[in-house]
Simulated scan of single mutants.
Amino acid sequence: MHGAPDGLLFAIYYPILAAIGVPANLAVIVILSRGRCGLSRCITYYLVSLAATDLLVIITAVILNRIVGIYFPFSVLYVTPVCSVNFVLMIGSRDCSVWATVIFTIDRFVAISCPKLKTRYCTEKVAAVVIGAVCGMSCFKNTFRYFIYEPLYTVGNVPWHCKIKSTFYNSPVWVAYHWIDSISTPCLPFVLILLLNAVTVRQILKAIRTRKRLLVGKQAENLNDTEVNNRRKSIILLFCISGSFILLWLLFVLTFLYVRIKNVRYFSGSNYNESNFNLEESGYMLQILSSCINPFVYAGTQSKFRHELRSGIKFSINFIAKMFKS
């Protein structure tokens, strides 16, 4: 890909992503908040927080950063101080989204593998505290990012756009910050999700085998056993959410390792032929796509969610039809 084709690809890709991601995540927030999907309040808290942080990622990273940058490159949002703030918000919301996935995985691990801890940990109050703590720490950590950017160029004493300062790659303090930042998001989440999922699935499969051995006669042949089906659905939901996260963030992690191991710089500017651009931008596109996937995971794995979604669509269509008639 070169020049114009790349620019055309981005001009099409990001608006489509926003058009899908914003209403999809809003629908998830509304549907799950109503509490009619058969999920516990604890799980609902985590899934709503995941949808809310994904929505923030789409607003800050896709709409305010990419779409505005493509169609309104000289907007006030691209004056360097404002641009720096937007990057802080964008990466802060991204980290919140990543860790929302992690704490949901931890909650399911505790619920399935630690029955003694379940009654104390898997509660609404704990969920609210954990979500608040994770989001607060993610936002605090990224406030330092405001100081790593400098103007790409200056026009009439007005600094425009943001590029990473050269000291970011050379200063021991910034190098340490970058390693800590990248290990905390997404390297550590990668390890935690893979490890916890492996243990959780092992426990679920063990429980399913134990339950089947306890069933006798015709019950042993009953493939519609409620408990077994619920555990299978837990595996599917957990695997789809965390599995999509791993796949869509993998290229981003490889890009970070490539930058540090090869001692090269991140892309900056608008030259589509610049070295490493395709690698970094492809990873970024997949990373943002992960913020649109979960609504489709819920729709594919949760029958009650699909029912509520259909009901909401029918209500909206009927409401709009009545508006036009009146």
Rank of each mutant, 00 (worst) to 15 (best):
F190C: 09
L117R: 11
P172F: 11
R108I: 03
M137L: 15
V201L: 13
T200F: 12
Y169S: 05
C122A: 07
S166Q: 15
T167K: 10
V175I: 02
V155W: 08
V199K: 15
S184Y: 10
F147D: 12
V102A: 08
K165V: 12
V110W: 11
V126Q: 12
V173I: 13
V201D: 02
V134Y: 05
P186R: 08
T101L: 00
L196P: 04
D181Y: 11
T105Q: 07
I131S: 02
T143N: 08
W160I: 03
I112M: 02
P159L: 03
C114G: 15
K163I: 11
A176V: 09
G132V: 13
A128R: 09
N197R: 00
A133M: 07
V191A: 14
T154D: 13
V175P: 00
T105E: 10
V158Y: 13
E150P: 03
P172Q: 06
I193R: 02
L188G: 04
S113P: 03
V201F: 15
A198L: 13
S138Q: 00
V134G: 11
P172C: 03
Y121K: 11
S166V: 14
Y121N: 03
L194R: 05
C122M: 08
M137P: 02
D181T: 14
N197T: 03
F147P: 08
T119C: 12
N142S: 02
V158R: 13
T119N: 15
T105G: 06
S184A: 15
R202M: 06
S138M: 10
V98C: 14
V155H: 04
V158F: 07
R120H: 07
I103T: 00
F168S: 05
S184R: 01
